[in-house]
Every structure is written in structure tokens, then in C-alpha cells.
Amino acid sequence: MQIAIDGPASTGKSTVAKIIAKKLDFLYVDTGAMYRSLTYFGLKNKIDLNNEELLTNLLKSMNYDSRVINNRLHFFVNSEDVTQEIRNPIVAKNVSQVASYPSVRKHLISLQQNIAGNQNVVMDGRDIGTVVLPSADYKFFLTADPKIRAKRRFLENKKKGINLSLEELVTAIKRRDELDSKQMVMAKDAILIDTGEMSIDQVVNSLMNKIQR
């Protein structure tokens, strides 16, 4: 079975996807972490993020893996734990540009489809239901007002000691939405859910009810 959860940044889709995967004992695939990992290693290796060819060559040398450690999902690239590093603001600022390159997308989409080919998966991203898993059994598209999403990111950053103002985050999220707009298209058969006034538990219950039905 394949479950696709799409939507813009900070709508709660990754958190919801992880919980649902755990409840169903399915594999959770965080496609965003793959693009973030490439962005992080591009920055780390001082590669020009405007150079699609160099980034694609770097991507082909990367071995991506994820596993649960102490009840938390960790992401590894070439055996290096990059769980924390791929969530820093500089990566978030540049990941949409990296994810827009056709050769990067082609390589990672193929990898994601291979992962989902022979096992039950919950996969979240921007175009899972339209491009990566167009035949998914269940498709959801989560959305929320940019100001609500910025407030969520602000609270997350505060816990991590990242100091960005709410106004800066609203601007950043709107810019991210604009950059993601070419890939972020809701599937015609997806179920739209506005998470703005919902708790994570409420969103999870809403999706689970539809899946179990």
C-alpha cells in the first residue's frame, strides 16, 4: 500500500506522516530530507548551488539511509548522521532551488519509486501524489495559512535556539511557496485538509479515519 501526503512547508505533513507510518507499521520516506541532504552536502563541499551538473554528480555519489534510534528517525548520508544539520536555516533557504533542477529530481524520484516498489510506505513531499506515486492508494494534501505556518516554525526554531523573527519567517515561507509552486500541484484525487486550526492528533485522526474506512 502507498500513502502520499503532499503540501507546502510547515503544514505538519512530515510529523503526521511519521505517526501514521508508525501506527500502520509502514516504512516512512521523508523525500524532503533527501533534497535537504544534497543541499547540505553541496554547501559543505562549497559547490555552487547554481550549478545543476555539479550537484547532480554529487548526488550520484551519495548513499542515503534512515533508521530509528532511541525512538527518533535519523538520516544518514555516506554513514554520516545529518539529522540536525539538514534542518538548519541556511539549508532551508536553499533547498527549493536545489530541488528545482530536473536532473536532481529525476534521480531522486527514481530512488523514491524504487523504495516504494515492494513495501508499504507513507511518503511525504511536494508532488508525491502527482509525480512520484501517481497510483498511490491514498493521497492527501495538507495546507495552512502562511502566517500560521510561520508561527509553527518560529516555535520550533525557538526550541532549537534559532533566532529568526516571525516576520522573517513569514517572508521566507512565502518565498519558499513561490519557489515550490512549479512542483507543488495537488492531485485531482487527493483529499485536501486545512491544518491551520487543527492539532497534530486531529490531523492524524482525520487521515487515519479515511484510510481505515
Results as ranks from 00 to 15, higher is better:
Arg105Val: 04
Lys106Thr: 05
Lys106Met: 05
Lys106Ile: 03
Lys106Phe: 05
Lys106Glu: 12
Lys106Tyr: 11
His107Met: 09
Leu108Thr: 02
Ile109Asp: 00
Ile109Ala: 11
Ile109Trp: 08
Ile109Ser: 06
Ser110Ala: 15
Ser110Leu: 14
Ser110Thr: 15
Leu111Pro: 09
Leu111Met: 14
Gln113Pro: 14
Gln113Glu: 15
Asn114Ala: 12
Ile115Met: 11
Ile115Gln: 05
Ala116Trp: 03
Ala116Cys: 11
Ala116Pro: 10
Gly117Gln: 04
Gly117Cys: 05
Gly117Arg: 07
Gly117Phe: 13
Asn118Glu: 06
Asn118Ser: 14
Asn118His: 07
Asn118Cys: 10
Gln119Leu: 01
Gln119Lys: 07
Asn120Thr: 00
Asn120Tyr: 10
Val121Ile: 09
Val121Glu: 07
Val121Leu: 05
Val121Gln: 05
Val121Cys: 07
Val122Met: 12
Met123Gln: 13
Met123His: 12
Asp124Asn: 02
Asp124Thr: 01
Asp124Ile: 06
Gly125Leu: 00
Gly125Met: 02
Gly125Cys: 00
Arg126Glu: 03
Asp127Val: 00
Ile128Phe: 13
Ile128Gly: 15
Gly129Glu: 13
Thr130Ile: 08
Thr130Val: 04
Thr130Phe: 03
Val132Pro: 02
Val132Cys: 09
Leu133Trp: 11
Leu133Gln: 07
Pro134Phe: 11
Pro134Tyr: 05
Pro134Val: 10
Ser135Lys: 14
Ser135Ala: 12
Ser135Gly: 00
Ser135Asn: 14
Ser135Ile: 07
Ala136Glu: 09
Asp137Lys: 13
Asp137Leu: 09
Asp137His: 01
Asp137Asn: 09
Tyr138Thr: 13
Tyr138Arg: 15
Lys139Asn: 10
Lys139Ile: 07
Lys139Leu: 09
Phe140Ile: 06
Phe140Cys: 06
Phe141His: 08
Phe141Leu: 05
